[in-house]
């Protein structure tokens, strides 16, 4: 049962920001609603005004800029999946869209919402961390850009202020060529991550460069395991070093026990998944240029 609330359909980013300013902390941004509506049903959030940004066209664009790829916060997961730019340059993101919830949810859920909701298990976050993404936050007064890694503060907590809107996600280019994603759910369709992991890296003659390892569902927030990254960075790739990095990644996680798995199981799975992803990313980094 949804609590009663007012509703406005924003016609532009400026309109949405104006409504946020006007209604203050009682306002909530409604994009796909796949998290917000559930929260409202469960009475975790009871906004007095819903500001619907799903029709704001400027938020639904993906384009290639100088030194980055810019993804509008309102792009849906299905939109990411169907984007030629994403398929060509960000195969890691295309990969995660195939494992993201189910088709119905993919058609509604947005990239901005997935980040702003800041669930520790949000599917898009580990890949975007591995791609060194930053988040563009807008207010009526202007914009600021923050690293995704800084944007996420804790479970369901971000740097987003009450009058701010996630406007876009920027991914610096060129992206590392070796990209790999592993998600362990307890079933294949409609699964919540028990552990998820994304790796990106380059290599030069077998030496690992720009290694980034994003982990989800094994700590209060999705995070990059700098311990594991440092083990790989600048070293020749080997099974042994991948196993050591995987072990470091597992030790850098702080998993909890819940209905989806025990802390011990998650810890073991971080090791297994990171090891698989490191091997896969390294192999892809070696693939010849087109």
């Amino acid at each position: 049962m949804l609590p009663q609330t007012d509703y406005v359909k924003a016609s532009s980013v400026a309109h949405a920001l104006d409504m946020l300013h006007q209604y203050g902390t009682g306002a909530a941004i409604l994009a796909g609603g796949t998290d917000l509506i559930v929260d409202m049903r469960e009475r975790r959030r009871e906004p007095t005004m819903l500001v619907d940004i799903s029709s704001v066209e400027e938020l639904a664009e993906i384009d290639v800029g100088t030194g980055n790829i810019r993804i509008g916060a309102g792009v849906t997961v299905a939109g990411l999946a169907g984007s030629a730019i994403v398929q060509h340059q960000l195969p890691l993101v295309t990969e995660v869209t195939r494992h993201f919830a189910d088709y119905l949810t993919r058609n509604r859920a947005t990239i901005g919402g997935n980040l702003a909701n800041a669930s520790p298990g949000a599917d898009l976050v580990p890949p975007l961390l591995a791609l060194n993404a930053s988040v563009v936050l807008a207010t009526a007064q202007g914009e600021r850009t923050v690293d995704l890694n800084d944007f996420l503060v804790g479970p369901r907590r971000t740097l987003l202020l009450w009058n701010e809107l996630v406007r876009a996600i920027h991914i610096p280019t060129p992206v590392p060529r070796g990209q790999a994603y592993e998600k362990l759910g307890l079933r294949t369709g409609g699964a919540i991550a028990v552990v998820s992991c994304a790796v990106s890296m380059d290599q030069a003659g077998g030496e690992c460069r720009r290694v980034r390892i994003g982990l989800g569902a094994v700590a209060p927030r999705a995070f990059r395991s700098s311990e594991a990254e440092q083990i790989m960075e600048g070293h020749m790739f080997s099974s042994d070093i991948a196993a050591r990095a995987a072990e470091a990644a597992a030790n850098s996680s702080q998993p909890i026990s819940d209905v989806r798995g025990s802390a011990e199981y998650r810890h073991a799975m971080v090791r297994a998944l990171v090891e698989r992803a490191l091997h896969a990313a390294y192999e892809r980094s070696s693939e010849p240029q087109e």
Binding site: D102, R187, T188, G189, G190, A191, I192, V259
Partner: peptide, 16 residues
């Protein structure tokens, strides 16, 4: 019951 939803009461999907 700690998993009273289809999200965490995991029936198989067609993909499974």
């Amino acid at each position: 019951m700690e998993n009273a939803s289809f999200l965490d009461y995991r029936m198989p999907t067609t993909l499974d």
